[in-house]
Design a protein around this nucleic acid. Sequence first.
RNA 1: GGCGCGGUAGCUCAGUUGGUUAGAGCGAUCGACUCAUAAUCGAUAGGUCGGGAGUUCAAGUCUCCCCCACGCCA
Length: 570
Amino acid sequence: MARHLITSAIPYINGIKHLGNLVGSQLPADLYARYLRGRGHEVLFLCATDEHGTPAELAAAKAGKPVADYCAEMHDVQAEIAAGFRLSFDYFGRSSSPQNHALTQAFAGRLADMGLIREVVEEQVYSNADGRFLPDRYIEGTCPNCGFESARGDQCDNCTKQLDPTDLIDARSTISGSTDLEVRETKHLYLRQSALKDDIAAWIGSKTDWPILTTSIAKKWLNDGDGLQDRGITRDLDWGIPVKKGTEDWPGMEGKVFYVWFDAPIEYIACAQEWVDAGKGADWERWWRTDKGADDVTYTQFMGKDNVPFHTLSFPATILGSQEPWKLVDYIKSFNYLNYDGGQFSTSRGRGVFMDQALEILPADYWRWWLLSHAPESSDAEFTWENFQTDVNKDLADVLGNFVSRITKFCRSKFSEAVPEGPDYGPAEAELIANLSAKLADYEGHMDTMEVRKSAADLRAMWVLGNEYLQSVAPWTTFKTDPAKAAMQVRMGLNLCRLYGVLSAPFIPDASADILAAMNASDVTWPDDITEAVSALQAGHAFTVPEITFRKITDDERADWAKRFAGIRD
RNA sequence: GGCGCGGUAGCUCAGUUGGUUAGAGCGAUCGACUCAUAAUCGAUAGGUCGGGAGUUCAAGUCUCCCCCACGCCA
């Protein structure tokens, strides 16, 4: 039994995530966590909400709520939706937790002690009306180059010229529209990532088994231009973790907070502390401190490609720079984007399906299966309603659901709602067992290496083997001449239902639980041996014919949903 | 403009270090079966592997150029 620490990129607190976000981090992380638990490994699976920064402040203001209240509410909303998708976090924390405050401040203090923090005085635009410094993207004005009226503080979207906020003519705040702006000096802390470049490059270089997507992004940032740049880790905001040097005040940094991208990944560690403090775990250090038992932990992170730089460079810079025995990530599984019907999902335009909407129209398993079996691993993937409908109907309703239905109903009509008597398995069953064993090995191999789409294909192939078997031995025909033999064939079919329930659980936990409950199965452990597994249910074992496991999506529904989620809001 | 991931059957995608007639699922067509959610099983059709040039005994797989899509950055 091995120990696995798994984290999913932590979703931003502002709003509900769409299916592309889900399939890019939380869902595959959950698949992996469920699989490893199923195999009997010890797993700690953590996720949290990422709560700091300007967007959270603005969203709270828009909602007319104090930012702390807003975040608390949205955390609960996201937690509820995550539960709806059956995301099996051991703990769903918050980056605004007291634990993360203390740990982030401790890291900053330690990095300062190691000489890796420098103070920089810079000029930034301050909005008197808003009472705050404005990040470049919250400033708009007329481009001095082309005259475009909605150029942003960092760049003109019309002529693409790179700009400084002070270049803009009639600059205004996009928050309030106010033109009462001024340039003020402000002091910030920078993490000297440039000093850690060689360490990080050596570490990345040692990860030869990582996905190309992960390492190519990391190497680009390491080597482009002047190489890895020092990064500002503080901001002039109210909402965030106050800048402190450990537990001490940081002279000159009063009223400032750490930048969200500094404290967010530290929450991975703080989340484990929250898990313990909430009474759900006993010891977080044995997962995170290599001097306290974490040296045998395998740590895997899941994220979309946009998060890769922060997980391959920024967070490792924090860890490596501290020179403390923190656990570094062993494997980063990154994903491309899921497109929606030929374009992007769009939060602002309401285009695509969001997590809460998805659960309103169909159970979680439908989404889990389709999204995972089409995970954007090697390139961006494409969601269309036509594909979703045909794939889900075929795979879940016809291949798996109908298999359970046909065998249980046949048994009930010809025998009873109990596994019938019959002889031992024969040659046809031996062949089936051999095929299943081979496919199970493929399935486990692909799950071990987190090849999500291939794992889904292997699982489906095992479902198909059951249908092939029934079709070939045809118990409905056998029954006419040799009822005892037919009973044996039915016994195999019922045992396959139980087996599918066990093996399918990482992908479709609810349906698996339903099947196992219908089969009245007490043993749900992962099979070591298929021969044994298909003998688990013995003659006389009572079962029930389950309700329809997966109903089909109709053409009307598909058309209706395609229209509903096309994005008419503006 | 620079960089990155891609461009393989109607659709969604696989194709290890270059090596026999390029694969899967869906869809289509035909057949079998009738236990089942008009389900299942089998068979067949369908691709000049974005375009061009090159290296090689041999290239979807390597090199160069070009085109297209998406993304990131400045």
